[in-house]
Amino acid sequence: MPLFKLSRHRRYTRDARYYAAFELAYTTVDVSAAVLFIIGSVMFFSDAWQTAGTWCFLIGSFCFALKPTLRIIRELRYVEENDFEDLAKRYQGDD
């Protein structure tokens, strides 16, 4: 059961744009975190680069923490618009 489905948010044109913007931000943060972890891992092979590698891991960790934060912000927007029906369906697993 996917928690977030685009079909549930396509009531209005602005919703599709808003949803797409959040998905783009989510994917950008996800890729950034992965790249930072790869770079940090490579830097750990050299003693001279370990401090920089540690910073890459730390920044990548913040990116991973930002991912669920973006989803919560998006869902709160629907709560602000009184879209409780869709939120209840996601909680119950109904489509």
Rank of each mutant, 00 (worst) to 15 (best):
residue 1 M to D: 03
residue 2 P to H: 10
residue 2 P to Y: 08
residue 2 P to G: 05
residue 3 L to H: 07
residue 4 F to N: 07
residue 5 K to E: 12
residue 5 K to T: 09
residue 6 L to F: 14
residue 6 L to I: 11
residue 6 L to G: 06
residue 7 S to A: 12
residue 7 S to C: 12
residue 9 H to E: 07
residue 9 H to M: 09
residue 9 H to C: 06
residue 9 H to A: 07
residue 10 R to V: 08
residue 11 R to S: 11
residue 12 Y to N: 10
residue 13 T to L: 05
residue 15 D to E: 13
residue 15 D to P: 04
residue 16 A to H: 02
residue 16 A to G: 04
residue 17 R to Q: 15
residue 18 Y to V: 15
residue 19 Y to H: 10
residue 19 Y to S: 09
residue 19 Y to K: 05
residue 20 A to P: 00
residue 21 A to T: 03
residue 22 F to S: 11
residue 24 L to E: 07
residue 24 L to G: 12
residue 24 L to V: 14
residue 27 T to A: 14
residue 27 T to W: 11
residue 27 T to V: 07
residue 28 T to Q: 06
residue 29 V to C: 05
residue 31 V to G: 13
residue 32 S to G: 07
residue 32 S to Q: 08
residue 32 S to R: 01
residue 32 S to F: 07
residue 34 A to F: 15
residue 34 A to S: 15
residue 35 V to Q: 14
residue 35 V to H: 15
residue 35 V to A: 15
residue 36 L to G: 13
residue 37 F to R: 05
residue 39 I to K: 14
residue 39 I to P: 07
residue 41 S to L: 06
residue 42 V to P: 00
residue 43 M to V: 02
residue 45 F to Y: 08
residue 46 S to N: 03
residue 47 D to C: 06
residue 47 D to A: 07
residue 47 D to S: 10
residue 48 A to R: 02
residue 48 A to W: 02
residue 48 A to Y: 02
residue 49 W to V: 05
residue 49 W to M: 14
residue 49 W to Q: 03
residue 51 T to D: 15
residue 51 T to P: 05
residue 53 G to Q: 02
residue 56 C to L: 12
residue 57 F to S: 01
residue 59 I to S: 00
residue 59 I to V: 08
residue 61 S to A: 07
residue 61 S to Q: 01
residue 63 C to Y: 03
residue 63 C to H: 01
residue 63 C to F: 03
residue 65 A to F: 03
residue 65 A to W: 00
residue 66 L to N: 01
residue 67 K to E: 08
residue 67 K to M: 12
residue 68 P to S: 13
residue 68 P to G: 04
residue 68 P to W: 14
residue 69 T to V: 14
residue 70 L to H: 06
residue 71 R to M: 01
residue 71 R to D: 01
residue 72 I to E: 09
residue 73 I to H: 11
residue 73 I to Y: 02
residue 74 R to C: 08
residue 75 E to D: 14
residue 77 R to S: 11
residue 78 Y to C: 14
residue 78 Y to S: 12
residue 78 Y to W: 14
residue 78 Y to M: 12
residue 81 E to D: 10
residue 82 N to G: 05
residue 82 N to C: 01
residue 83 D to Y: 08
residue 85 E to H: 09
residue 85 E to V: 13
residue 85 E to A: 11
residue 85 E to I: 15
residue 88 A to W: 03
residue 88 A to S: 14
residue 89 K to N: 10
residue 90 R to N: 08
residue 91 Y to W: 10
residue 91 Y to R: 11
residue 91 Y to I: 11
residue 91 Y to T: 06
residue 92 Q to N: 00
residue 92 Q to D: 07
residue 93 G to P: 02
residue 93 G to C: 02
residue 94 D to A: 11
